[in-house]
């Protein structure tokens, strides 16, 4: 506890390019951009293979294998190959981390929709794309959001390793603290990252409440 007071109580930690606000912004930039890129790749692909069923086995197998990629290894390899001129070396491993959960959950969500519902939608005269947008996506939304939430949490947590190769973000407090045996900084950084991850978790819970149809989430039984 004293370490935390040392860290958060020190005004030096609250200003300048090494301060908490600046590092937090960097962290959010890494995590936000990676998540956005991962969504742009994984959501359309997941919807496509979930809806058509084509190439699903191949795509899902690749995505599951990609889950095993160690982010730290990927990061140091890419930085050695490309240098650290831009933030691209951080984005690539983080995107690789975020795509599988979004892709697999979107696919499973769409594919898992009750076939009767799908048939009913076609029977009502909806076309392929309308069925996807008006029936399949709303029904699959809890699983899609779960995938996004898992991806977001992992990205926020893992963006800390960017500091190991000299890039910014909240990981700097952790890695620099470890290197200089500054324990308050290390613990303080760890607590900040954990708080951020919890906020993301809370944010997604709220988004889920707001966007998932009451009929789907069983908050309201349909008679």
């Amino acid at each position: 506890m004293n370490w935390l007071i040392d860290f958060f109580g020190d005004p030096v930690n609250w200003s300048g390019p090494d301060g908490i606000p600046a590092r937090l912004l960097e962290h959010l930039e890494f995590a936000g951009l990676s998540l956005l890129l991962a969504m742009l790749i994984a959501l359309p692909l997941g919807l496509l293979i979930g809806h058509t069923g084509r190439g699903a086995l191949l795509v899902v197998s690749i995505a599951n294998a990609a889950r095993a990629l160690p982010t730290l290894g990927l990061l140091v390899l890419i930085v050695l190959l490309m240098g650290v001129g831009t933030i691209l070396p951080v984005l690539i491993p983080l995107v690789a981390l975020a795509v599988p959960p979004i892709l697999v959950n979107t696919y499973e969500g769409i594919r898992g929709v009750d076939p009767d519902l799908r048939d009913a939608a076609y029977g009502m005269g909806l076309r392929g794309r309308q069925v996807l947008g008006r029936v399949l996506v709303p029904v699959a939304l809890p699983l899609i959001l779960l995938g996004l939430r898992l991806a977001a949490i992992q990205v926020v947590a893992t963006a800390t390793v960017a500091a190991y190769v000299g890039l910014g973000g909240l990981g700097r407090f952790i890695i620099d603290g470890l290197a200089t045996k500054n324990f308050p900084s290390t613990i303080g950084g760890a607590v900040l990252v954990a708080l951020l991850a919890l906020l993301v978790q809370l944010g997604f819970t709220l988004v889920q409440r707001a966007t998932v149809s009451p009929g789907v989430s069983e908050r309201q039984t349909i008679r």
Partner: peptide, 8 residues
């Protein structure tokens, strides 16, 4: 689960 592994 949402606690970062490095932090823990």
């Amino acid at each position: 689960y949402s606690l970062p592994s490095l932090a823990v």
